[in-house]
Amino acid sequence: MAAVDWLLDDSPSSRLQARIGRLYRLALAIARNPLAVAGAVIVGLLVLTAAFAPWIATQDPIVQSLGDRLKPPSAAHWMGTDELGRDIWSRVVFGSRITLTIVLLVALIAAPAGLVVGAVAAYAGGWTDRVLMGLTDVFLSMPKLILALAFVAALGPGIENAIIAIAITSWPGYARIARAEALVIRNSEFIAAVELQGASAWRVISTNILPLCVSSMIIRVTLDMAGIILTAAGLGFIGLGAQPPTPEWGAMISRGRSFILDQWWVATMPGFAIVLVSLGFCFLGDGLRDALDPKRTEGK
């Protein structure tokens, strides 16, 4: 009980206590929200599956076995087999690696890019702000999927190009948030104090403004994950994303399309994986937002 009191102390006596207390409160808030817990579990499972794919999969995801083609789900093949006799369960398991890679890379490219653009725009103000935000608005008003399609068409099909195309279309959202957050922080007293001490603009941005934007960025990135997964799967489905024989979920649905009426499992199973993982990120993002940002109840 004493430990809990220390964690929940309204007036923490050290910065460490304040930080740990905040994390604890966050964990409590998430734990109280069943959907957020479900989301965290699903995302955790995705990471574990990706990490231990060779041990979880029952067969090699690439090797063909034409004698076993289009077998319905059974004890040997939990999700059945595809038109080349590959075990769909094993392919779905290995597909988690591709999905995780895509969302992580997109987040690692787009979020920092947006963060820097937004923070610089807010801090510099004036024309820099207007030009950067004008550009951001132009990108924001574009249909993301179509733009990504056009970019991949130009760059050529493939998973790397799909990642680049999705990243190009998703940074503006982050720039907007970062700017809004940074503006609030920028006008606060303590930034004025740091500036009075002679800190350079870049130093103020990188050590004071950027770290404070991070929590809203994490919420936003988590909420965007589902969209990124769907876009990536869509590119794969059209044939512009990951190329065969890679077990990418969207591409797998595309292969199963021809058999949807008789061998429903070929297209359906990878779809369930997409839905589950996307839903997991949605739940988690929603829970994080409610927990970190109680002021905004949007989508609560």
């Binding site: 589902a226 869509g234 949605c282």
Partner: peptide
């Protein structure tokens, strides 16, 4: 609505 792929 955010988690289901439309094509699927």
């Amino acid at each position: 609505g955010y988690a289901v792929p439309a094509f699927w």
